[in-house]
Simulated scan of single mutants.
Amino acid sequence: MKKLIRRLVAMLVLVLIILAVTCPNEADYNRWLSKEYGVTCVNTGTENKCSKSGKEIRFKSGHRTYAAIYMGVEQTYSEDNKDYQLRAVGILNTFFEY
């Protein structure tokens, strides 16, 4: 019984280590955003300047949640007086929109 518990704990620790090592960062998110939506953003220190296919779009608001094993993103952009909200979670170096 003790061997089984030790193995389960070892497997859980291994899974958590893998998730922590493959947790995406801000650069990974920006690459994904550019690849999936064609949106590139540059932080100028006072604001985020964003463009989509060479046309400027407005970054309205957003936040990012970093945890040891995942990254959550929620951002709002405005293009042609229309708001677009993007929500995604990043895990295992991959982002999933929800």
Rank of each mutant, 00 (worst) to 15 (best):
R87L: 00
A88I: 01
D28R: 12
Q85H: 05
G38W: 07
N30K: 12
T46Y: 13
T22A: 09
G45P: 09
V13E: 05
K2C: 15
K2A: 15
I17E: 05
L12R: 11
E26I: 08
V9T: 14
H63Y: 10
F96Y: 03
G45K: 09
G38A: 07
E47W: 10
Q75E: 06
R31Q: 01
N48H: 07
K2T: 15
G54V: 10
T44Y: 09
S53L: 11
D83R: 08
V21M: 04
K82F: 14
A20S: 10
A68F: 05
L16D: 06
D28Q: 13
I69V: 11
A68V: 06
K2H: 15
S61H: 04
Y84A: 00
S61Q: 05
A10V: 15
E97V: 07
L19D: 08
T46M: 14
E56S: 12
Y37K: 09
E97N: 05
V13Q: 06
T44Q: 09
N30M: 14
L14I: 10
G38N: 07
G72Q: 13
M71P: 11
R6W: 12
G72E: 13
Y66E: 03
G90P: 03
I69A: 09
Y37L: 10
Y66V: 04
R87Q: 02
V89L: 15
A27Y: 10
T46E: 14
W32Y: 15
M1I: 14
A27L: 11
R87E: 01
A10P: 13
T22R: 08
Y98L: 11
L4G: 14
V73Y: 04
I18G: 02
V42M: 12
E56G: 09
V39E: 11
I18F: 02
Y66P: 03
D28H: 13
F95Y: 01
K35R: 07
R58Y: 15
T40W: 14
I57G: 08
Y66N: 05
E56A: 13
F96G: 00
E79H: 04
F95G: 01
T22N: 08
V13F: 08
C50M: 07
L14M: 09
P24Q: 05
L8I: 11
V21N: 04
V89W: 15
A20Q: 09
A27W: 10
K52Y: 15
